[in-house]
Amino acid sequence: MHTPTNNPHSSAMRRGRLIRRHGLFTRVWHWVNLACLVILLMSGLQIFNAHPSLYWGNDSTFDAPALQITAVRGDDGAPMGIVRIAGYQIDTTGVLGLSRHNGELDQRAFPSWATLPGPQWLAMGRYWHFAAAWIFAPLLLAYLAYTLISPTRRRLIWPTAAQWRALPATIAHHARLKFDHGADYNGLQKLTYLLVLFGLLPLMVLTGLTMSPTMNAAWPWLLDMFGSRQSARTLHFIFAFALVAFFVIHLVLVLISGVRNNLRSMITGRYRIGSDTAPARDNRHA
């Protein structure tokens, strides 16, 4: 019969141990980046509300936009919020197109609670958007350079050959809501961060710059890259909501995989790994 033991070493093994996963620069960048992205999203929705339609190509065909969020009169004469996309019309009353503000239904693409700095203030919304963008873009460039220059950071974010081979199994593992608490990110996490950091976020910045006539004059290749300012605006909108989808999934995974451990790693830099993981590598400069 097995007799329980009060061996402190065994207790420590069950609890795992703390490693240094994230350095100060990464942690500061993470939280400043989060604040900037929230302001960019909410002020961007404010700007979109001023003209809630998207187009593709050089022409703005007001009668046939690629996407439109508006309000119309229904068959019974009552107002209804709708989203028109690809020839289809979706009733979104109460959320998109027509939502409540101060207790009354008001026509607006996105509800007032989702916009900054107020329910309908285009000029100030643009100021907020550009102010956050000029903090976000240089910090993103600095972080990407830091990731490429730092060997430790590259190891933490680039999948190993073994992780590439194990990617299908890792995806299946996550689908069953099973998570490992190792010193290293797994292949799926690394691939996702690579796509977001070196794909989605730079494209957000570039499409934003393409909408500026001044930047078109300075960098005409932006228009060649995205086709037109209208196409860039549509892509900017799509990328923004792809980022929202990433944020929601990221937040859910943080909550269900160990909110205390994950938050501690982004506040103090320390992350607790279990005794059943591979030997830890101390990423003290990551």
Rank of each mutant, 00 (worst) to 15 (best):
M124D: 03
A183H: 06
A218V: 13
G81H: 07
F179C: 08
T214V: 12
A142D: 07
H129P: 05
F198I: 10
P159F: 00
T170M: 02
H101L: 02
A218S: 11
L122A: 14
N216M: 04
S99V: 00
A242T: 02
A232S: 09
N33M: 11
I90L: 15
V254S: 03
R155G: 11
Q163D: 07
R284S: 08
K178E: 15
D106G: 13
G16T: 09
R233T: 01
S265Y: 10
W31L: 01
I149R: 14
I69V: 11
N33L: 09
S10F: 08
L105M: 14
H30C: 01
I69E: 00
R17V: 13
S43Y: 12
M211G: 00
A114E: 04
L45Y: 01
A278H: 15
I69P: 01
L54H: 11
R233V: 00
P168V: 02
F237G: 02
S53A: 15
L67Y: 11
M124I: 11
D106V: 15
F25Q: 06
R154S: 09
H30D: 01
G187I: 05
S231T: 10
H9K: 05
T147Q: 06
Q230Y: 03
I273T: 02
Y271N: 06
N186W: 02
F25R: 09
R126C: 08
G77R: 06
H2Q: 06
S99Y: 02
L24Q: 00
S265A: 15
P202M: 02
P65G: 15
R17A: 13
A114W: 05
L34H: 06
A50E: 10
P119Y: 12
L156A: 07
P202Q: 05
Q68T: 12
T210G: 03
C36A: 11
V95F: 06
G44D: 05
H181I: 07
T5C: 11
H173Q: 14
T268F: 12
Y127P: 13
G23H: 02
A109T: 05
D75N: 10
T268R: 15
S265Q: 13
L251C: 08
V38F: 10
N7K: 10
A242L: 04
V205E: 06
G74T: 12
T160N: 14
S231D: 04
P8K: 08
R281W: 14
F130G: 04
Y185H: 11
P138N: 12
A71V: 06
L201M: 10
G258T: 13
S228A: 12
L194F: 05
G208D: 00
A137K: 07
